[in-house]
Nucleic acid binder design. Structure first.
Lengths: 233, 233
DNA sequence: CAGTGGTCTAGACCACGAT
DNA sequence: TCGTGGTCTAGACCACTGA
């Protein structure tokens, strides 16, 4: 009679989405419970669970024990951003990657950075500044503080040849992190490095990663004027 | 002897992460297969599968049939951004939300917009421009084209009272979308609306949502100078 | 209290893909 | 080819939470 059997979790998901889309199930309304749906679709409850749980993770459904499952009132869009190694990002675009170390020093970080990294404000940290290039053009400035007390080998790492960005990802596992995106006007120095005009709008990423409670590293990335970060929704 | 039993998927996940973290399993190296781990942990293979599958979705592991499971060489950070209704975003910060419709018209979109929305370039679309305010201060400019042929009721929607942002999320379900983030210098007009200086760097979001193959709406959001978009990693 | 989702189990079959 | 992960099933117990 009708189409294919609904006996795998993706088919269940598609059917649920279809009903939401056709307004058979409207935003805010409850949908049948897992057991009933399983019976209707002729599959196991675990299969329905997998489908509905995934939809809930994507913000399409609201699920609560005892209260049941409802269609989300405002389907919160979830955009998943991949934060790759910069070299891979460039190479994935088919461009030639290059890298130049600009600065490396032990220094006392500014007070705001100490707060962000939750380290004492009277100790030196390892500071690294570098320029990443794509197709011989400036791509992004990496400006980084590293808590070398927590990262074995950081003081000996060959940052002249491999970016801290890449070295740390392979050598300093983190448990969690915080990231923020914003826009900043280029300083004269940044403009010079990035082949931009002073005051050009730059896409700006700040990222701090932690190993349990202690910060490993904090980095700011200033992308060249015109950079766009894309993803699916 | 040792700690707690490892008989739920989160415990398995924690144990796996612990081993990766302690370098018992190093980046690029294979780890035991699901059956062996299940036996070692004393739980079902499905439990191990759930744990490892979740870690793979987070970019911590690489899994391939037959090849087995390996610790990811470069743990690709996955930042999940919530894209909420602007009103909710403002209210969640404890600020008073306000909204002002600036413009509403039928007009022919620019060629670039037609390409982006994949509509014929000789037809009018509904254009809406509005300002969102937080704590009485300008927050973001919403600049939107709506494919009213595909959104029932769009022409009659009360955009003077409810933002297109919010109305569409509740009334126009989408199947997928595309989003990009960048930085732009404020035009004089934007600067005036956002209480900024001309040329100030603005955080800029472009988003186009689709219903299957046809575009529903395309919006650009120009956030006030200093806006930061934050998330966990 | 009782209904719902959350999870675990033991077993099974299958699709993919490295060798 | 055949080992590995991907998935389904039927049943069970549990945790949370609304009424």
């Amino acid at each position: 009679m009708s189409g294919q059997a609904i006996n795998n979790w993706q088919a269940v998901q598609d059917e649920v989405l279809r009903r939401i889309h056709r307004r058979e199930w409207k935003p805010g309304e409850p949908i049948p419970n897992e057991a009933d749906l399983a019976q209707e679709f002729g599959c196991a409850r675990a299969t329905v669970n997998r489908a509905l749980r995934t939809l809930a993770e994507n913000g399409i459904l609201d699920r609560r024990r005892k209260a049941g499952t409802r269609v989300a009132l405002h389907p919160v869009g979830k955009a998943t951003l991949d934060i790759p190694v910069i070299r891979h990002e460039v190479e994935a675009k088919g461009m030639c990657y290059d890298y130049r170390l600009l600065d490396r020093a032990m220094a006392r970080p500014p007070a705001q950075m100490c707060r962000q990294m939750q380290v004492a404000d009277d100790s030196d940290l390892l500071y690294v500044r570098a320029l990443h290039l794509a197709a011989r053009a400036p791509y992004v400035i990496e400006d980084r503080w590293i808590n070398h007390h927590k990262v074995a080998g950081a003081l000996d790492a060959p940052f002249a040849e491999i970016s801290a960005n890449e070295w740390l990802l392979a050598n300093a596992p983190y448990t969690h992190g915080q990231i923020s995106f914003s826009a900043r006007n280029a300083t004269p120095e940044e403009a010079a490095l990035l082949n931009a005009r002073p005051n050009d709008a730059l896409f700006w990423i700040e990222r701090t990663t932690f190993d349990h409670e202690t910060a490993i590293t904090s980095v700011t990335l200033s992308y060249a004027h015109g950079y766009r970060m894309n993803t699916e929704l």
